[in-house]
Design a protein around this nucleic acid. Structure first.
Lengths: 369, 369
DNA sequence: TATTAGCACTCAGGAAGGTAGAGTGCTAAC
DNA sequence: GTTAGCACTCTACCTTCCTGAGTGCTAATA
């Protein structure tokens, strides 16, 4: 069966209503509000068709209709318009964004906070992944007789540091020399390229009197290993889920909050949209949002998520960049009954803003080299 | 009315039962389990007395008795014994504690994680406060032509760093010289002592050709200001509250989780035991736990907490030290129906262990100076 | 005088039943 | 193709009733 214009209107209307009210939508209600001059009986017939086609569902016989995942997907791809942020919202965003232009990880944390406050959903931001970055500088800073600080900076501005203990016999001059050596040997390589073999190379290349510094190399090796494993993700506004009747059951709330507490699961859940998108790109038909001049906002609806906990939630994400390289992503998680057009508009706006900040901070001086 | 030996036994028994079951305890139950050879009627009379004295409460006429805050306080101060950790628990702790001896803030985060896993309550740890620490070293590390990294280390091993932009005209040698100057001028001062006036002093003492570096000083000023305001607190195991019927009401759970989400409130709640204790010390009678050779474990029960959200919860905390100085605290939050003796034993153990680690890491080299 | 048996009383919580209202599907008329 | 009308279904909510746990009080007992 083809989905006619009228059916589209009705579907659109049902979804809008349901997004706003969280109550199953009845035919009478649509007949009155849509203003098509149709009776509830006609709407009823159309809705029965839409249900047959899989766009709507009925919780039980005598309830109204509720959109299915398929319905939301159709809505997202074909029906919903671009939401225009109001002046009030823009001002709010502006005020929020004024703070905090310090360290990159703090910027990301703030971004997640803003997003959750701005959308009233649960927001997240993944920290920049370092492993693709090349080492820009590596520095050893003596702290006291028996410890030094190792500082790693990549060309994307990401920074890691760690304090390590060393033998008290090592002189400051020694450390400086060694620092220079490391800089020479490691600068320009990506963290992925620096593996145990590489470290071993340096060790053998070093003169024997550097031997007592070997522990430092091991520490660097450790740091890099840690960085590889690390998947920092900031989650903000977890308690926002209490705003939605979808989670008003204690067990559901618990399940969801436990999921959010486990950063690893969250990271996993966030990887999915990416994968799904790659698959989707093989298919000829492109999703609407990929075409436009916007940050590429991805949407995963309900069962499109692989993780069981996420089966009744939706995820909306966008990447953020330094230069042309994807650094990480940010987005929101909420019930499938999400205000998608608002969500997309808001995420789009924040991610663009974020890109601007990051590129001012880091990209300019990358270019100078 | 004086509290006789038998009443003590009954109170003890009621509280133990209630801690284990979360159900109001009836006279019949006590008569059977306590094995005093008394009938339920006698117990009933005694319980009525205990209620009159304020140690017990009745949710409603036909329910059993429940301990009041006063009851718990009496239990904690006078009745409960020292819980001995089982071998199984000790092994568990040992296994957990093997990980992660890296940065101080990570250690604290792990400590909170361990504590929550170990006790099954919600745990927290406050990050070390820097402001009492004296600056051990301050270092400027050039990162690229237009940015440098400022690193602050205090004698307690706490470290802060921040990347700042500078004019591209500044040469590396200049930065090094300036770095040395800062080291000379600021080392040994506590962060509290370094205020705007102090910074201004340095500015005027500097030769004019250092002028372009003034922004760096401002940044240092900023960092110090930030540090003053900062109250990092790690909260772990928030979803543990779902294990307790006390929070099985959605609104209560929500309220509590929102409270935990707001780090500022948490910090505030944690400061209270300290204040309460200071007041208590004025009074002649000392709480039991302050006397012994243990980490000083503090307990705040129910309404003893000032914050409204905390009125039906208890907080158990201990400080951790580097050398003789309190660096921060760690502890747990749970329902007033908490297994206090276990909680105290576990926190005591972890905080001692933590002290050991921290002092090995940091105190030894403090002494060397 | 302290303890206990006995009994009437209270109350929360669950089961059973009954009702109202929202919404449907179907049929027959327009 | 649309609509009015109607019988039907199902949930949500309310009321009522009942049970069981636990109490307080009284009178008898050691």
């Amino acid at each position: 069966m083809d989905i006619g214009e009228r059916k589209k209107q009705i579907l659109h209307s049902v979804i809008n209503e349901y997004i706003a009210s969280a109550e199953p939508v009845g035919s009478r209600h649509i007949a009155k509000n849509l203003g098509l001059g149709l009776s509830s009986a006609t709407i009823r017939n159309e809705m029965a068709d839409l249900e047959e086609m899989g766009y709507l569902e009925q919780p039980h016989t005598s309830a109204g209709r509720v959109p299915s995942d398929k319905g939301y997907r159709y809505y997202v791809n074909e029906l919903m318009g671009d939401y225009q942020l109001s002046l009030k919202e823009l001002n709010m965003l502006k005020t929020m964004m004024q703070f905090q232009l310090g360290q990159l990880d703090k910027v990301m944390k703030s971004a997640a906070d803003f997003l959750s406050q701005f959308t009233h959903y649960t927001a997240f931001a993944t920290a920049p992944e370092m492993k693709q970055g090349a080492i820009k500088t590596i520095e050893l800073v003596p702290i006291d007789v028996s410890s030094i600080l190792i500082i790693l900076v990549t060309n994307e501005g990401v920074m890691k540091n760690r304090r390590v203990m060393i033998s008290p016999n090592v002189t400051v001059e020694f450390i400086h020399k060694f620092s220079d050596l490391l800089k020479e040997k490691l600068s320009g390589y990506t963290l992925e390229e620096i593996n145990v073999v590489k470290i071993q190379e340096i060790k053998t290349a070093m003169q024997t009197n550097f031997e007592m510094l070997f522990p430092i190399l091991d520490f660097i090796s450790d740091i890099i290993e840690d960085v590889r494993k690390e998947t920092d993700v900031y989650v903000s506004g977890t308690t926002n889920i209490f705003n939605f009747p979808e989670y008003s059951d204690l067990d559901k709330a618990r399940e969801f909050l436990e999921f959010l507490d486990d950063k690893q699961s969250v990271t996993k859940a966030l990887k999915e949209p990416e994968i799904a998108e790659k698959e989707a790109e093989k298919a000829p038909k492109k999703a609407k949002e990929t075409g436009k001049d916007k940050a590429k906002v991805r949407i995963m609806i309900g069962k499109e998520n692989q993780l069981d906990v996420m089966r009744s939630s939706s995820v909306v994400t966008a990447n953020y960049y330094v230069g042309d390289r994807v650094m990480g992503k940010l987005g929101i998680i909420g019930p499938t009954r999400m205000d998608y057009s608002k969500a997309v508009a808001k995420i789009d706006r924040i991610s663009r803003y974020l890109n601007k900040i990051l590129n001012e901070l880091y990209f300019d001086d990358n270019n100078k080299e």
